[in-house]
């Protein structure tokens, strides 16, 4: 008989995953981004359910690999990753901490009703340059006050 394996608390595992950065926007963890849907012990196997942000986001596969690697590094040998599409991810899944970190990083966080404020000078008078930016999740605006172009996280 094998020795009983330790099965760390889900809250602890969640805290570990809060250290795993998103590959495109490393200031956000995969927890901040809201793509880890569920963590569950099934016997001695940890089941991790994740959801993609955008259908074509090339980071999705890297994220899955990074999560698995991080859990292995913490000593969890038996991890099963599944992907779910439903309900679809929206920017509402991004945590408050994530929103703050985005702003500090220079990317305006997503807002539902109003246009994003300039992350540099805080002005709310900005002009849309393009709804498509350097990654699927970002668009481009320009601040009308400080004239700096900036990226914003698209509402989705």
């Amino acid at each position: 008989m094998t020795a009983p394996r330790t099965m760390p608390d889900i809250a602890l595992i969640r805290a570990w995953l809060d250290q795993v950065p998103d590959p495109e926007i490393p200031v956000l963890s995969v927890i901040d981004l809201g793509i880890v849907r569920d963590l569950n012990w099934a016997g001695d196997c940890l089941e991790v359910t994740i959801t993609p942000t955008y259908s074509g986001c090339p980071a999705t596969e890297v994220i899955a690999m990074t999560i698995e690697q991080a859990l292995h590094d913490r000593g969890l040998s038996s991890v099963r990753l599944t992907t779910t599409l439903s309900p679809p991810w929206t920017t509402d899944w991004i945590s408050e901490k994530g929103q703050r970190r985005l702003r500090d990083y220079g990317i305006a966080p997503p807002l539902r009703k109003v246009a994003p404020a300039c992350p540099r000078c805080g002005s709310t008078t900005t002009t849309l340059v393009s709804e498509f930016g350097s990654t699927p999740c970002k668009g481009l605006r320009r601040c009308d006050r400080c004239r700096e172009p900036f990226e914003y996280f698209k509402c989705h």
Partner: peptide
């Protein structure tokens, strides 16, 4: 440049949808 980026973003979305 903005249109170049937009077209390839749309292409990427469509490619992701095609995979699904």
């Amino acid at each position: 440049l903005e249109e170049d980026i937009a077209l390839t973003n749309v292409a990427l979305d469509l490619l992701g949808q095609a995979r699904l």
